[in-house]
Simulated assay, not measured.
Amino acid sequence: MTKYTIDEKSHAVLEYLEGKKSYKSIAQERNVGLSPLKRWVARYLKHGMEGLASSYTNYTLPFKLEVLKYMNEYGASINETAVHYNLPSDSTLLNWANQFKEGGIDALKPKKKGRLSMKKETKKTSP
């Protein structure tokens, strides 16, 4: 999957919103799938330029529960919910839903990432 800059995303979105071209023609010209392009437009309409920016963040347990609750209460699709909360990817929400279904609330708790620290072994002396 190719990463696109905010400028590339905004030009594609504005072309569509100005009515110059269709989703299909913009997607073909810019070598973008239809789904990401539609997602960019929806996020731009909901959040402005901030919706097009990539974000890497850790989400808290209460936030994850709020998002899942919203999706269940309003019957919103994964895509609609991701746009509403400005999540960077639909798969993030899909992962949360699957984790909650399989492991409950405990599965949604943030986990430490990265390698474990190397602890120095203590030498035991035998008497």
Results as ranks from 00 to 15, higher is better:
14 L>G: 04
14 L>I: 11
15 E>G: 02
16 Y>P: 00
16 Y>I: 10
17 L>N: 13
17 L>A: 10
18 E>H: 11
18 E>K: 11
18 E>L: 05
18 E>W: 02
19 G>M: 01
19 G>A: 02
19 G>W: 00
19 G>V: 00
19 G>D: 02
20 K>V: 01
20 K>P: 00
20 K>D: 00
21 K>M: 00
21 K>I: 00
22 S>K: 01
22 S>H: 03
22 S>W: 01
22 S>N: 02
22 S>G: 09
22 S>Q: 01
23 Y>R: 07
23 Y>N: 12
23 Y>D: 10
23 Y>S: 12
24 K>G: 04
24 K>R: 11
24 K>S: 12
25 S>C: 00
25 S>P: 00
26 I>V: 13
26 I>S: 11
26 I>F: 08
26 I>T: 12
26 I>G: 11
26 I>K: 04
26 I>E: 13
27 A>Q: 15
27 A>S: 15
27 A>T: 14
27 A>Y: 14
27 A>G: 14
28 Q>Y: 04
28 Q>N: 14
28 Q>V: 05
28 Q>C: 06
29 E>V: 00
29 E>S: 12
30 R>W: 04
31 N>L: 09
31 N>I: 13
32 V>D: 08
32 V>S: 06
32 V>R: 14
33 G>V: 05
33 G>L: 11
33 G>W: 08
34 L>T: 14
34 L>C: 10
34 L>V: 11
34 L>K: 15
34 L>N: 13
35 S>R: 15
36 P>H: 10
36 P>G: 12
36 P>T: 07
37 L>I: 10
37 L>R: 12
37 L>D: 07
37 L>H: 08
37 L>P: 08
37 L>G: 09
37 L>Q: 09
38 K>Q: 15
38 K>D: 08
38 K>S: 15
38 K>T: 14
38 K>M: 14
38 K>W: 11
39 R>H: 07
40 W>Y: 04
40 W>K: 07
40 W>G: 02
40 W>M: 05
41 V>I: 08
41 V>E: 03
41 V>L: 03
41 V>R: 01
41 V>F: 02
41 V>T: 03
41 V>A: 00
41 V>N: 02
42 A>E: 13
42 A>L: 13
43 R>T: 04
43 R>G: 05
43 R>P: 03
43 R>W: 02
44 Y>I: 03
44 Y>W: 07
44 Y>N: 07
44 Y>S: 08
44 Y>E: 02
44 Y>K: 06
44 Y>A: 06
44 Y>L: 04
45 L>G: 03
45 L>Y: 01
45 L>P: 01
45 L>H: 08
45 L>C: 12
46 K>W: 04
46 K>V: 04
46 K>C: 10
46 K>N: 11
47 H>C: 11
47 H>G: 14
47 H>W: 10
48 G>P: 04
48 G>A: 06
48 G>H: 05
49 M>E: 14
49 M>Q: 13
49 M>I: 14
49 M>N: 08
49 M>F: 05
49 M>L: 14
49 M>V: 12
49 M>Y: 07
49 M>W: 09
50 E>Y: 05
50 E>I: 06
50 E>G: 09
51 G>H: 04
51 G>N: 06
51 G>F: 03
52 L>K: 08
52 L>Y: 05
52 L>T: 05
53 A>F: 03
53 A>S: 15
